[in-house]
Simulated scan of single mutants.
Amino acid sequence: MIDRLDHLVLTVRDLEATCQFYERVLGMQVVTFDHGRRALHFGQQKINLHLAGHEFEPKARHPQPGSADLCLIAAVPLEQVMEKLTASGVAIEVGPVYRTGAAGPIRSVYVRDPDHNLIEVAEYVQAAEPLAKEAAVTEISRVLQQRPPGIMGAQQVGEFGILLPLVKMDDGKLGVLFEKRASTMRRQANEICFPGGRAEKSDESKWATARRETSEELGVPPENIHFVGELDWLTGPGRAVIYPFVGFVEGIADMKPNPDEVGEVFVISLERLAAAKPSTYTSSLVTEPEEDFPYHLIPGGKRYPWRTGKVEHLFYELDGRVIWGLTARVLAHFLERLPGEGWSCK
C-alpha cells in the first residue's frame, strides 16, 4: 500500500541554524515554498521545517524540538562523510557501528543537529567478508531480508482477523459489543464471540479482514468501523493464528446482523467489564501420537518424554451469559491494557 516516504517535519528552535547545519555539513539543499516556508531537499525526499511555537497546521499533537531520531543513507562512502563531519567541527557521538537498515546491513555514525536530534548517517554494506565469497549464501541472505518475518505455518493452518467492537451506549458511555452465534452454525453454535473470520487473498491487511467480517456479520458499512488499535496475536484451535483488533463502530442502531451467522447482539458497558473478575480454570495438554507414529526414529522410542502443559481458561459470567474461550482471552488482554481506576469511559 505504501511505496516510500515523501517528506517529514522537524520542529526546530532556530530555522537559520538548522538550515546552515544541514546545508553546510550534510550537503542538503535549502528550498523555499508556499510563501516563505523552508525545507531541506535531498535525493527524492525533503524535510519540512516548523519553527517551534509557530507551527503550520495541521501539525503533530506534541511537536517538540530535539525529539527526532533519523537515519539518512549517504550518497558517498561513509569515510568521506566522517571526514566532512570532522572538518565541520561536528562530533561523532557513536560509530562507525553496524546496524540493520530497511533493506539490509548498514554501517553508521551518529551525530547531533542544532536541536540535539539524533542523526544517523549510514551506508549499506556488503555481507561480511566470509559471506561475500559465497554467492549462494549471499543470495539466501538477500531473499530472507526481503520478506517480513511471520508465524511459521500460519498460512497453512489459517489466519483470522477479529474485532473487539467499542460502541457508544445510550447513556453516552462506551460499551463492548458481543455476538451470540446463530444456533444453525456448524461450529460453536450459540457461543458468545467477537465478529471476525478467515483472511482472504483480497484483504489488504489483517485489519481489513477484521473490518470486512464485522461489516458482513453486523450489517454496518465498512466506513462506520474505525481502527482504534491492535492487540497481541494468539494461536487458536488447530494452530490457527488470530489477529485481534479494537475498533469503534458507529451507527449500531441501524445495523442489520446476518441471521445466518448471528443469533443475537448485545452490549456490556466497558466500565462494568473492567470491574469484572473472570473465573480461571485449567486443562491439560497431552501428546498422543497416531498408531503409525515412527517411534523407532526418535531417541527413547515409546518412552520419549513428551512435554505436557496446561491451558488457562477464563470465564466471565454476566447477566446469565457466559463469555469464555478465545473471546474471554482477547477481552481480558484488552482490559489489562486499560488505565487504572478512575479513568473515564465517556
Rank of each mutant, 00 (worst) to 15 (best):
M1V: 14
I2G: 10
H7R: 10
V12G: 05
T18G: 03
Q20S: 14
R24E: 08
G27T: 06
G36K: 11
G36W: 08
A39M: 08
N48D: 08
L49M: 06
G53F: 02
F56M: 08
K59Q: 10
A60S: 10
R61F: 04
Q64F: 02
P65H: 04
G66Y: 01
S67W: 03
S67D: 14
D69F: 05
D69C: 05
A74T: 11
V76M: 13
Q80H: 11
V90H: 01
V90D: 00
I92H: 02
G95R: 10
R99M: 13
L118E: 13
A122L: 09
E123C: 10
V125S: 08
Q126L: 14
K133S: 14
L144A: 12
M152L: 15
G153F: 01
Q155A: 14
V157R: 12
L164A: 07
V167Y: 02
D170I: 10
G175N: 05
K180R: 15
R181L: 02
R186A: 05
E191L: 04
I192K: 13
I192M: 07
I192V: 13
C193V: 15
A199W: 08
A199Y: 07
A199N: 09
S202D: 11
E204C: 10
R211Q: 11
P222M: 01
E230S: 07
L231V: 06
L234H: 09
P237G: 14
V241K: 06
P244H: 08
D254T: 06
V267L: 02
V267C: 06
E271W: 02
A274C: 11
A275I: 04
A276D: 05
S279M: 13
Y281T: 15
V286L: 09
T287G: 03
E288T: 15
P289C: 06
Y295T: 01
K302T: 12
R303K: 14
R303T: 12
W306E: 01
H313D: 02
L314Q: 07
F315W: 14
L318C: 03
D319S: 05
W324K: 15
R329I: 00
R329M: 01
V330C: 09
V330W: 14
F334W: 12
G342T: 00
K346W: 15
